[in-house]
Design a protein around this nucleic acid. Structure first.
Lengths: 231, 231
DNA sequence: CCAAAACCTGAATCAGGTCTCAGGTTGGAG
DNA sequence: CTCCAACCTGAGACCTGATTCAGGTTTTGG
């Protein structure tokens, strides 16, 4: 339960890391083009079908240039996870900004998450592959998101808005719900039809939120037995 | 929401499909050895690092023999998903067999799921990769499990043991929770320590079940503020 | 304007994979 | 015991794709 250390991963794969080589405007643009191309290519055909050639072609850049910016296919993959993770958290935080209660924030956060999922299927696909391509990057992704949740839940608990459930366990449960519901009701639908839903079906969203809110609701004052577990 | 059709997938990848070629005892044993080796190899190094050579070596079988049983790496991967899916559902059903209430069944089912996850990390890893290696197999896996859940939830609703939430949405939420909690608290722990937990930490399990049970509980008849699902 | 620094390029190298095939082995039915 | 399906084998033909490198181009600072 001690905070994992991702500094090694960030040093080698995060273009925003302090140790990253200085770039001129041009260099930065090229790097961004590569990352964007990688997002598209990895999302479309997955890690092992993707190739550096396809990424550089998509980016409109020479093959050799790739290696000026990333050490390997693995490295750009990790960089992409870090990048997507940053962006999805930003999207969630932005959506939650105006909320006045935890409940409202929860709703907004999920909405932000689903919107991002709809707009960037790569997030879901890439994270799934990360399980085996780069377990370290996978952990960074989930850990960062869970950290945010835990903090929010703790505050809400202090304010009496949420039951005294273990916030970390609850956070993982929430992530799981968001991930699978998003996959099922946004990405699958999209593949089936040609339409591309940009948000979750309101009926599904409503029932999912009801599920979550019920689960987190403070317990009615009467004493329901709390199972104490010896750690 | 119409039931997807997996017959094509099963025809080409399910050794138990009716159209599968007849095998003698020896042939069946070889096929099983290949599937077992594939489980180990895919779980250990993932789809794109795995190779037919590594699988046949692990199985103690000649390279050429592989192609008598599976058309390609993709095919054996799909066969493995189908096989693992069958086994995890069996494990869950078995665990739930003696339960007398839905609540008890829920608990037992999750316990069965986590036990299987602990014993067969391949399930989790392989399913994650299936997202891109074989989306069809991925859908088969999730759909089959959700079908079971939905049926159980419907019955429990009829018996008044579960609220009137949309059972399909709830089923996907439950799957998501199980998957991510299992990944985090069984598989991660295992990788970190050298110890290999064979079941979920009781504290985590208790809080997760509390989360789930609260979420599904029938709404108290008296007026505890009831948020309307339809906004 | 010029030199240095930064950037770009793709043919060639090379490691490692998939799948075929021609021929050997096994086991059980008669 | 014989014979014939059914089964097994692994060398090698054939690909694919990651990575290197020697040399060209563009930008920047003075």
């Amino acid at each position: 339960m001690t905070a994992p250390d991702f500094s090694e991963l960030e040093r080698r794969a995060d273009p925003l890391a302090p140790e990253a080589p200085r770039r001129t405007k041009r260099g930065e643009a090229t790097q961004r083009k590569l990352l964007e191309a990688a997002e598209a290519v990895f999302a479309e055909m997955g890690y092992h079908e993707a190739s550096i050639v396809k990424i550089t072609e998509r980016a409109g850049i020479g093959l050799g240039t790739f290696y000026l910016y990333f050490d390997s296919k693995q490295t750009i993959f990790e960089a992409l996870v870090i990048d997507l993770n940053r962006r999805v958290r930003h999207s969630m935080a932005e959506a939650m900004a105006g909320a006045s209660s935890r409940l409202e924030a929860e709703r907004a956060g999920f909405a932000g998450f689903f919107r991002f999922t709809a707009e960037h299927p790569a997030l879901y696909r890439v994270v799934r592959e990360a399980e085996l391509v780069s377990p370290e990057a996978l952990r960074l992704h989930y850990t960062r998101i869970v950290e945010g949740y835990v903090e929010g839940l703790r505050k809400a608990q202090a304010a009496g808005e949420v039951s005294d459930i273990d916030p970390e366990v609850a956070a993982w449960a929430l992530m799981g719900i968001g991930e699978l519901v998003g996959a099922r009701y946004i990405l699958w639908e999209r593949d089936d039809d040609d339409r591309r839903p940009t948000e979750l079906d309101p009926h599904v969203f409503a029932h999912m939120m009801r599920f979550i809110e019920t689960a987190l609701a403070p317990r009615p004052p009467k004493g329901v037995a709390d199972e104490k577990a010896t750690p």
